[in-house]
């Protein structure tokens, strides 16, 4: 494939699959938010200000569970630490074209899916451009906020007459996490994943759902770090 610099419009077009995927998930979030007792404006505000799907669903659980605001904020923050890796990985792939003059703005849209799409485009031979990143991120962001608004205004009872649709939307979050897990699955990530799964199940069964989530994330990350160190030691000796 010949190398080609993509434009803002190219980014908008490339975002189409993300837009189609985000809208129903955001709709589901808007409905869930109103079911959890939030107002329509509050639901839209969460999508505008946080803009991180899984965190927002967790925010609903934390708010409904009466978690203190700082504990809730820290939990949401801890969930998105993985995003620190996306920018450097993207810039590395962009090479000499990796302009970052307006990164303070377009990087806001660097979600899991936008990162995946951008990285995939670079891997296929497209040259990096900040305009493309703006297009990609903006379309996804608008879709997310619009989907939330439609869901919130449709209201918590919108799907009462459609239990199968409601069940499918309820499963969308699990499906999203599973698909994301598949997208990052690698041999190096296995220790973190296995320990996270075991710790989450044990923490949830023997203590609570919140303990399960924290135990899974912390134990999994520590296990991955330990696995990496041990692997490095063995390679060093070999």
């Amino acid at each position: 494939m010949s190398e080609k610099t993509a434009s803002f419009r190219g980014g908008l077009l490339a975002a189409l699959p993300i837009v189609m995927g985000y809208f129903p998930i955001a709709f589901s979030f808007g409905v869930a938010a109103t079911r959890a007792g939030l107002g329509q404006a509050e639901a839209v505000m969460l999508s505008l200000v946080i803009y991180a799907g899984a965190s927002q669903f967790l925010a609903l659980s934390l708010v409904a569970g009466g978690a203190p605001v700082l504990v809730a904020a820290f939990t949401l923050i801890a969930m998105n630490v993985r995003h620190v890796l996306y920018g450097p990985a993207l810039m590395k792939e962009a090479g000499q074209d990796g302009s970052r003059r307006y990164a303070w703005a377009w990087a806001w849209g660097l979600t899991d899916e936008v990162f995946g799409q951008a990285l995939g485009a670079l891997a296929r031979g497209q040259r990096f451009s900040e305009g493309y990143m703006f297009g990609l991120g903006l379309a996804a962001y608008i879709s997310w906020v619009a989907g939330t608004a439609v869901g919130a205004f449709a209201g918590g009872g919108a799907l009462d007459g459609w239990p199968a649709v409601s069940a499918g939307l309820d499963f969308m979050l699990s499906a999203l996490f599973l698909a994301l897990l598949l997208s990052i699955l690698s041999r190096a990530a296995l220790p973190a994943i296995v320990i996270a799964v075991v710790a989450t199940v044990l923490g949830t069964v023997f203590w609570s759902g919140t303990v399960g989530i924290l135990a899974g994330m912390i134990c999994g990350a520590l296990a991955g770090m330990a696995g990496g160190l041990l692997g490095g030691l063995f390679r060093g000796r070999g």
């Binding site: 899984a54 967790l58 801890a78 969930m79 630490v81 993985r82 699990s174 996490f177 599973l178 994301l180 897990l181 990052i184 699955l185 990530a189 973190a192 994943i193 320990i195 996270a196 799964v197 710790a199 989450t200 199940v201 949830t204 759902g209 399960g212 989530i213 899974g216 994330m217 912390i218 134990c219 999994g220 990350a221 296990a223 991955g224």
Partner: peptide
């Protein structure tokens, strides 16, 4: 990976 695996299970 740990966070995403945790969230799927949760």
């Amino acid at each position: 990976p740990a966070a995403i695996a945790t969230l799927f299970v949760a």
